[in-house]
Nucleic acid binder design. Structure first.
Length: 900
RNA sequence: GGGCGCGUAGCUCAGCUGGUUAGAGCGCACGGUUCACAUCCGUGAGGUUCGGAGGUUCGAGUCCUCUCGCGCCAGCCA
């Protein structure tokens, strides 16, 4: 037996890696129905998730832990339900982020820039970098217990996925959904690339509104007052606009005004975009550097002047300011205008500054030739797919957010001036200037046949390839067996923060390119925050690193915390203390398991007679059945957190705290009692481990293995229905069992026993009786006498009563001397504690109790006397009537106790 | 101006389709060396009853309206 001795505490360090490797080795992560394997049955519906691809260079953070835990939970649950499951893992090349990191590293180590190294060499370096960090991040994902099919792992720059990207680009282009042209875009001067609207964040910052004079060109000395937040853009002004009905300025419309410093003459135009109330009511128009102005410029066919170059320095168009940094220029030009007498005033003003999502530098709206995806039509399809229910978003409230975004969608700028990513598959002819857009690299211009062609230097936005993820990972555009069987996928699970970036784009792309929704359900989880609800950030130094956390407390503890501490779509505050509490839970499971295994080993290996279940046996089984019903319902309605909480509660507060305590006695009785107790323990542990496995896969698998080993070695009678599976990870999920009529009665009786025990314990504690000291008790049980007599030993043991003097009676004529008393559930309890009992204080205590009971009686009498009795459903009324009856009896009993 | 979320015990949060003296973890207090577990066990205190005000209802933390506070998303008014 000693060889089977389990350590006193669950040792996750010695468990997690071993089990993970074993699972992989046994092939459990692979779909049980696989088009690549013999016996494949295409008619069985699989459950498929594409993992949100982690950035190759990223360090593991709690966000990863969150989605891995959540998706692994869903996958494991489905797998246990016997559904063929596929979870496709993978990583993302993360264009900007990765390129930046490598650039930084090159600068630090070799002091070279990417330009100095050259494109080809640089990209090579990035691949080397990728290789290294991919190994790290993917092993960290494994560490979380992710049961994905690693043989199907993908990387966004894989050959196959690159083919998909190119196919998508060409198809979009051919359908006219992708176009190239000069547009006002968001330019990141630091990164020297365009970025999409989504990659710009606006932050409110204190700034100034600069008021100045736009002098009329006619030399009259008259001027139009104008205000701006960015004086440097004056250099690019090509008009001054006023409202068409603004009597103040109407007379100037059609005249020319002079651009300060530069002296260029520009027209005064009328446009009702101008808000007469705001600022001076006159607006300077800079089509080259402001989105609104750009549109006005289009309407009025104004000239577009770019005054900023790629690094946000002033262009030659800025005259004397050429070469200056944008912010220096802002100061300088204002000073110069002051000197020139053009300044009116400055006013403190809160700006809405566009900043790069990455790095935070100020983004400049600039005109630039870029590639765009025409979104409006695509968006409509994506909208419909959710509207008509082909895709369901959970929680539902996010559908509104989704609609809102798609209804106001702008074209998507997809070209990036980077080196790391999917090169745009477009070649320009140096001879005829035509474009060749091709699936295969061309060697000549398709229009004129010239060999003087060069490929577009830019790459595609990383999200362009991510948008194809659910099908590109399965082989699309080829109709591979995987694609045919596993696509569309089932659930897309991710944080709500990338609903637009990723989810919406996958839906758009999926519909357009595959003609199908890429998944039927979108499950969105919240953002991870620190214990006080603040966003984690390095600058706040409140980042919780999951790796040391797992080192210290185990993966299961972290997973359980994330899964059970969260509600769909709501942010979760992660507190290390909570993780520690869940580590304790893992340990609790472990130790309950040790107890059960020990019980099995020491119990008879077969029964003599048919089962004669104890009240406790029946109670715990009935409760387990209730649990099964609730947990299954909660799983089906995506309420995983609540399901976990309920299992936790059941396991700890009922199974461990009560049933196991009673089982100790039952096992000690030996014989059939011991056998059936061991059997019950075995069944319950087996069932609970199955229920818990999706949450805490490691401790449950490990313990279950020990359970199985012990049970198999000990007795055939412990084998569950259907036999012992070879591993918990593939053990059948516990489905709800049909209700049986005996359940309610057993639960009621056992609840009575618990009440009595708790009340005695309470009295003991209150009277400061030594916890282990056996004392006398007299229970006056009335109609429940037989139940209590039946369970006397249990009460006696759990409440530490002296078996020689403890008695249960139906009624009592004379109250015991010097006894502490109480009434619970209609049972009168007397603890004759002798001298320590002070009758006065007892009377006070009981009177207080009586008061609360009487107030309840009053409450119920009022309730039942009113409309409630007439209008509420009969069962609800009956329940309250019953309570009233009980309270009245209790009241009566308490009065007696006080009286005598 | 818009959309959404949150505001429940000292702290961090649960609470499904409304059902009737509100739950958990942590913290706190008191007490525990029983052969599963001190990563534990027992007992308890703690919420003016769930931000505030109305309303619907026999009944609301749970639905509706308004309101206050916090947060998020979206928004290109100089």
């Amino acid at each position: 037996m000693s060889k089977n001795e389990l350590p006193k505490a669950y040792d996750f360090k010695n468990t997690e890696k071993r089990l993970y490797d074993w699972w992989v080795e046994r092939g459990y992560f692979k779909p049980s129905n696989d088009p690549g394997q013999p016996g494949f049955d295409p008619s069985i519906k699989p459950f498929v998730i594409s993992i949100p691809p982690a950035n190759v260079t990223g360090e593991l953070h709690l966000g990863h832990a969150m989605y891995v835990s959540m998706e692994d939970l869903m996958i494991r649950y489905q797998r246990m339900k016997g559904v063929p499951t596929l979870w496709v893992p993978g990583t993302d090349h993360a264009g900007i982020a990765t390129q930046l990191q490598v650039e930084k590293d090159l600068m630090r180590t070799e002091e070279v820039t990417r330009e100095e190294l050259g494109r080809e060499k640089f990209v090579e370096r990035v691949w080397t970098w990728k290789k290294k960090y991919h190994a790290i991040i993917s092993s960290q994902i494994r560490r979380l217990g992710a049961s994905c099919d690693w043989d199907r792992e993908r990387f966004t720059l894989d050959e196959g996925l690159s083919v998909a990207v190119r196919e998508a680009f060409v198809r979009f282009y051919e359908k006219g959904l992708i176009y190239r042209g000069p547009r006002l875009i968001n330019w990141s001067p630091g990164l020297k690339t365009a970025v999409s609207d989504l990659e710009v964040e606006y932050s409110e910052e204190p700034g100034k509104l600069y008021y100045f004079k736009y002098m009329l060109a006619d030399g009259s000395g008259e001027f139009i007052p104008v205000a701006t937040t960015r004086p440097e853009t004056i250099l690019g002004d090509t008009a001054v606009a006023v409202h068409p009905e603004d009597t103040r300025y109407l007379k100037y419309v059609g005249k020319q005004v002079k651009v300060p410093i530069l002296g260029r003459e520009i027209p005064v135009i009328a446009d009702d975009y101008v808000d007469r109330e705001f600022g001076t009511g006159a607006l300077k128009i800079t089509p080259g550097h402001d989105p609104n102005d750009y549109q006005i410029g289009q309407r009025h066919k104004l000239q577009v002047i770019s005054v900023l170059d790629a690094i946000a320095h002033i262009t030659p168009a800025g005259g004397p300011y050429e070469g200056m940094d944008r912010f220096d220029c802002r100061k300088k030009i204002w000073e110069d205008m002051k000197k020139a007498g053009l300044v009116i005033k400055e006013q403190a003003y809160t700006l809405n500054v566009p900043r790069s999502q990455r790095g935070g530098e100020v983004i400049e709206p600039m005109v630039s030739t870029q590639w765009f995806v025409r979104m409006s039509e695509l968006a409509e399809d994506a909208l419909k797919a959710v509207q008509d229910g082909r895709i369901r978003i959970i929680p539902e409230r996010f559908t509104k957010v989704y609609y809102n975004w798609l209804e106001n969608i702008q074209d998507w700028c997809i070209s990036r001036q980077l080196w790391w990513g999917h090169r745009i598959p477009v070649w320009y002819c140096d001879d005829c200037n035509e474009m060749t857009v091709a699936r295969q690299d061309p060697t000549a211009c398709t229009k004129c046949g010239s060999r003087n062609i060069h490929q577009d230097p830019d790459v595609l936005d990383t999200w362009f390839s991510s948008g194809l993820w659910p099908f590109s990972t399965l082989g699309w555009p080829d109709e591979t067996p995987d694609y045919q069987y596993f696509y569309p996928t089932s659930v897309l699970e991710t944080g709500y923060d990338i609903l637009f970036f990723w989810v919406a784009r996958m839906i758009v792309d999926g519909l357009e390119l595959t003609g199908k929704v890429p998944f039927h359900t979108v499950y969105l989880h919240g953002i991870i925050r620190d214990e006080f609800g603040d966003k984690m950030s390095k600058s706040k130094d409140n980042v919780i690193d999951p790796l040391p956390l797992m080192d210290e407390l185990g993966t299961d503890a972290l997973r359980f915390t994330l899964l059970v501490g969260s509600t769909p779509g709501n942010d979760i505050n992660v507190d290390v203390k909570r993780v520690a509490a869940n580590r304790n839970f893992a340990n609790k499971i472990w130790n309950a398991g040790r107890f059960v295994i020990n019980a099995i080993n020491n119990a008879p290996d077969k029964p003599e007679k048919a089962a004669l279940w104890s009240l406790a046996d029946s109670w715990i089984w009935a409760r387990y059945k209730q649990l099964l019903g609730e947990v299954n319902h909660l799983f089906e309605t995506w309420q995983f957190g609540e399901a976990g909480r309920q299992i936790y509660e059941f396991f700890w507060s009922e199974l461990a705290d009560w049933y196991i305590e009673i089982a100790k006695q039952q096992l000690a009785e030996g014989g059939d009692r011991a056998f059936y107790t061991a059997q019950t323990l075995s069944r319950l542990l087996d069932g609970c481990l199955r229920l818990l496995h999706p949450f805490t896969p490691f401790v449950t698998e490990e313990l279950w293995g020990h359970l199985k080993t012990a049970a198999v070695a000990h007795s055939d009678h412990l084998t569950p229905k259907g036999g012992w599976p070879e591993a918990l990870i593939i053990a059948p999920w516990p489905e709800p069992l049909p209700f049986e009529t005996w359940e309610e009665g057993k639960i009621a009786h056992f609840t009575l026993i618990m009440e009595v025990v708790k009340t005695i314990r309470n009295l003991r504690a209150e009277k400061k009786v030594q916890p282990g000291k056996p004392i006398t008790a007299i229970l006056v049980a009335g109609l429940n006498t037989s139940v209590l007599l039946d369970q006397a030993v249990i009460i006696q043991n759990l409440a530490h009563l002296d078996p020689k003097t403890f008695q249960v009676v139906e009624k009592m004529t004379e109250k015991p001397e010097n006894a502490v008393s109480m009434v619970t559930s209609g049972i009168e309890i007397y603890l004759p504690l002798g001298d320590i009992v002070d009758s006065d204080s007892e009377r006070v205590r009981l009177t207080r109790e009586l008061q609360t009971i009487d107030s309840q009686i009053k409450r119920l009498e009022t309730l039942l006397g009113g409309d409630f009795a007439k209008k509420a459903p009969p069962q609800v009324v009956e329940k309250e009537r019953q309570k009233l009856v009980e309270y009245r009896a209790t009241s009566e009993q308490l009065r007696n106790q006080i009286k005598s």
